[in-house]
């Protein structure tokens, strides 16, 4: 924006002369903006830039209490192990499945909720929003009860009623992943739906009216008007979902804490936590962090690029 240089300027100047140096500072329009953004600059330097650089440095070191030694690429070489690949695969799979569930379904639900067909819109919106109010830990505790191993626990007794075999939900790979994805989907479905609903409000009604005149069907309108118009929101939801998926930790921690059978719940962040804080192997932990950072940056740049959002200036 432009600072308005109005005719008040001379008055201010003559007044300013009389004031002390300190009050001059208080009134100065040159200094003021830096005072306002100072908290950000300080916290950025101390609590973001410095730790980020440190992570990078640490990933080339062996960090022991009281001494650190430079070990070159040793930590990265150590990442060539089965546990790391398991963690990476779990994280990618988890992210993939949460995207599959948490983008198309909320989008369609938002369109349905926005249509004239649905009544009680606000009640539906609120009910679907409530899960995100519960912490992942509390939600996970409930899921542990529902998906208990005993054949009398809810989900298993349900399977038995359907004539299927009960499962040890949290003991094998596929079911473990299923419960984690379900937990995340349960918590975030309503929020993502609200994002899409907000996006739908921005679509002008004229477009639909014009399409109606042209005799377009409901599906044609959905694919040719609604979907393209929702693109910015979709890109946003996609990006935060990707970042959210790759930083996942709690959904696994609540089921297995640090160690899951066969590492079925180990994620990249869980691996950082395990190596860095439980085994005090900070160098390796930092290397995992750097790899994770690279993945997140690359994936989000690709998703932004594919969606063409670099072309639009925001």
């Amino acid at each position: 924006m432009k600072v308005v240089h109005s005719n008040t300027q001379p008055v201010m100047l003559s007044e300013e002369k009389k004031r002390s140096w300190l009050s001059g500072l208080l009134y100065s329009r040159k200094v003021a903006p830096y005072v306002f953004v100072a908290p950000f600059i300080i916290s950025f330097l101390v609590f973001f830039a410095y730790p980020l650089v440190q992570t990078f440095v640490m990933s080339f070191q062996e960090v022991l209490p009281g001494e650190t030694t430079f070990v070159g690429l040793e930590n990265y070489r150590k990442l060539n192990n089965q546990t790391f690949y398991t963690a990476l695969l779990n994280t990618v799979q988890y992210t993939f499945w949460t995207l599959v569930v948490l983008i198309p379904i909320p989008l369609v639900l938002a369109v349905l909720l926005n249509s004239r067909m649905t009544r009680f819109k606000n009640i539906f919106k609120s009910a679907l929003f409530i899960p995100v109010l519960t912490s992942t830990i509390i939600a996970g505790i409930v899921f542990r009860l529902i998906f208990g191993d005993m054949s009398s626990a809810f989900m298993n007794s349900f399977l038995i009623k359907l004539g299927l075999k009960p499962e040890l939900w949290l003991s094998s790979e596929g079911t473990g992943m299923f419960v984690m994805v379900l937990l995340a989907s349960w918590r975030w479905l309503g929020v993502n739906m609200l994002y899409f609903l907000a996006g739908l409000q921005n679509i002008s009604n004229d477009l639909y009216e014009a399409a109606d005149i042209d005799g377009a069907s409901t599906f044609q309108k959905f694919f040719h008007i609604t979907l393209p118009s929702l693109k910015p929101v979709t890109v946003y939801v996609l990006t935060i979902s990707i970042v959210g998926g790759f930083r996942m930790f709690e959904e696994s921690y609540v089921f297995w804490q640090n160690y899951s059978p066969g590492d079925i719940g180990l994620t990249l962040v869980g691996y950082i936590y395990q190596q860095g804080l439980a085994y005090n192997n900070m160098g390796l932990g930092a290397a995992i962090g750097i790899v994770l950072l690279m993945i997140i940056l690359i994936v989000s740049v690709i998703s932004l690029k594919l969606s063409g959002s670099f072309k639009e200036e925001h």
Partner: peptide, 12 residues
Amino acid sequence: MVPLEIMMLPLF
């Protein structure tokens, strides 16, 4: 865009 989890060790 950058999650805290990445640098939690130096931060700690």
